[in-house]
Computed example of a mutant assay.
Amino acid sequence: MKQPFEVAEAVDARLAARLAQLRAERGWSLGELAERSGVSRSTLSRAERAEISPTAALLNRLCHVYGRTMSRLLSEVEDEPVPLLRAAEQPVWEDRDSGFVRRSVSPPHPGLRGELVEGRLAPGADIAYDRPPVPGLEQHIWVLAGALDVTVREAAHRLDAGDCLRMRVWGPTRFRCAGDTEARYVLAVVLP
């Protein structure tokens, strides 16, 4: 049985290959992608060679440029879609720098518009996205445990366990663990 770090390294390698493929499909140089995404050429190059594990913010910028959600991008590096995804088989991705853990709960399917994601933020974790991966993306955030501060553009919302926020994302967003315990939430994502 593979160890968790071996699984993470394998996902990072497939993700790196997919990022390089998306850029090649568009015929863009690293410089062109850097201009479009606001990410340095060297960081993009290292991400495409799996020398670094991309952060959530970096993946969000690339998803914006490529017009896909993070879940869709991550599902593209997984196996063929299945209708049932057991808990033990659900892909988990971690942004080690920010303390964010993301579990893709829904079985991936490129033809469907909705998906469920479980998010966990460690105490003090703070993630800011400068733009949505897909403009007009509909999101529902349902907090299961802990407290979460969510800022959509400039509107701040404090969510406690049981609270649910629905939003359509057009600009910057920020997720911050608001307490001294982990914030755990379900994110329902619906493509426009």
Rank of each mutant, 00 (worst) to 15 (best):
A13M: 12
A16W: 03
R18H: 04
L19Y: 00
Q21D: 12
R23K: 06
R26M: 02
G31C: 02
G38L: 03
S40R: 08
R41A: 01
A47H: 01
S53T: 07
P54E: 01
T55L: 00
L58R: 01
L59R: 03
R61H: 02
H64R: 05
H64C: 01
Y66D: 00
G67I: 01
R68N: 05
T69W: 05
E78N: 07
V82K: 14
L85H: 11
A87E: 14
A87R: 13
E89T: 12
P91H: 03
W93V: 02
F100K: 13
V101W: 07
V101H: 11
R103Q: 13
S104T: 10
G114W: 11
R120N: 06
L121Y: 11
D126G: 06
I127F: 07
I127A: 08
A128L: 11
R131D: 01
P132Y: 03
P133Q: 08
P135D: 05
E138K: 15
E138P: 02
Q139C: 13
W142L: 14
V150A: 06
V152Y: 03
A155R: 15
H157Q: 10
H157A: 07
A161M: 08
D163A: 10
L165C: 06
R166E: 14
R168Q: 13
R168S: 15
G171W: 12
F175C: 09
A178I: 12
Y185P: 02
L187D: 12
L191R: 15
